[in-house]
Every structure is written in structure tokens, then in C-alpha cells.
């Protein structure tokens, strides 16, 4: 792989890698570091990677592994920084609506962050990034059945919790 193919094949997936790392780490700075590390790793081993079929899935898998390594080395929970890092702006809303929307987004973010790791990865890959089940199997190294079961549990756990929060304020 030369510089040109690196730019055309690998670099376009940088935002997906960034979001996937962010899902694990919750900190934008650390997610950026992981993406940088992923690219450096790919660039340094580019000669041995000619037979890789799906570059993007392969990059996502490296991102997952490096993010998990980083979590292990830092030994900290993902939920706390994720809450802090959610800073999407809603410019067309009134301050009241904006606050309400932010609260809702933060609440969902917390619910997803509190899911077990596999469920969190899979709901992100499917519902945020729109990957097919086969691609999710390749990225997560799980079989189809495990992927579907985890996705089902993740979606329904979020749904139930949202319903409870809105119904009973829990």
C-alpha cells in the first residue's frame, strides 16, 4: 500500500473510527489519540496488509482493540467522560427547547454508555454507523446469532429505560 491508496482507502474512514473510539473512551482527546495510533499502526504494517478484504472493517477492529487496551491500561469507567463529552449544539431551538433536547440526548447517551460493552459496540455499529450484520460480525469477531441477540437486548434495554424515565421519572 502506498501513500495514495492509504489516502483513498483508509483516511476516509477516520470519522467512523473516531466515533467508535469515542463510544469506548468517552473522551474526544483520547479518541483522537487512538485514531492516530490506528493510522500509524496501519502505515507501519502496510506491506503485510495487501490481502485484507474489507479495509474499513479491519480498521474498526483495530480501533476496538486499541480502545479496549487503553481502557484496560487506564482502568476507568467509560460512563463518566461520555456524559461530559456530549456537546452537540441545537442552534435552531429556543434556550428552553435546547436545554430540554440536550437533557434528552444526555439521558440517552448515559443509557447507552451504561450498557454492557458488547451491546454498546453493536448498537453503535448498527444504529449510528449503519453497518450490516455481516460487517458487525467481522468487526466484533462475534457470530451472527450473538450480534443479533446483543442488538436486541441493547435496543430494548434503552427503550424500556426511556419509557420508565418518562412514565415514572425514574
Amino acid at each position: 500500500m502506498n501513500l495514495e491508496s492509504f489516502q483513498s482507502r483508509i483516511l476516509p474512514s477516520k470519522n467512523k473510527l473516531f466515533r467508535f473510539a469515542l463510544r469506548f473512551l468517552g473522551s474526544e482527546e483520547e479518541a483522537k489519540d487512538v485514531v492516530q495510533e490506528v493510522f500509524i499502526r496501519i502505515w507501519n504494517t502496510r506491506e503485510q496488509m495487501e490481502n485484507v478484504q474489507n479495509w474499513e472493517a479491519w480498521c474498526m477492529r483495530i480501533t476496538r482493540n486499541l480502545s479496549l487496551d487503553r481502557i484496560r491500561s487506564m482502568t476507568r469507567k467509560q460512563t463518566q467522560p461520555i456524559e461530559e463529552s456530549f456537546d452537540i449544539q441545537h442552534e435552531d431551538l429556543t434556550p428552553h427547547e435546547s436545554t430540554e433536547a440536550d437533557e434528552s440526548m444526555n439521558r440517552i447517551n448515559q443509557l447507552i454508555a451504561a450498557l454492557p460493552a458488547k451491546q454498546r459496540q453493536i448498537i453503535h455499529l448498527r444504529d449510528v454507523e449503519g453497518y450490516s450484520y455481516n460487517e458487525i460480525c467481522e468487526i466484533t469477531e462475534l457470530d451472527m446469532n450473538q450480534v443479533k441477540v446483543n442488538l436486541f437486548r441493547a435496543r430494548n434495554a434503552v427503550r424500556e429505560k426511556l419509557t420508565k424515565i418518562n412514565a415514572y421519572g425514574l
Binding site: L3, F6, Q7, L11, K14, N15, L17, F18, R19, L22, A31, K32, V35, Q36, F39, I40, W43, I88, H124, V128, E129
Partner: peptide
């Protein structure tokens, strides 16, 4: 969440 991106980070092939 899908709008979150890394575009403001100086990350390109030359940098890598």
C-alpha cells in the same frame, strides 16, 4: 452522534 467528526484534527497521510 453521527455528526461528530475528527475533521478539525490535523490528521492526514503526511502527518501519519
Amino acid at each position: 452522534f453521527k455528526e461528530k467528526n475528527i475533521d478539525h484534527v490535523p490528521l492526514d497521510a503526511a502527518a501519519i
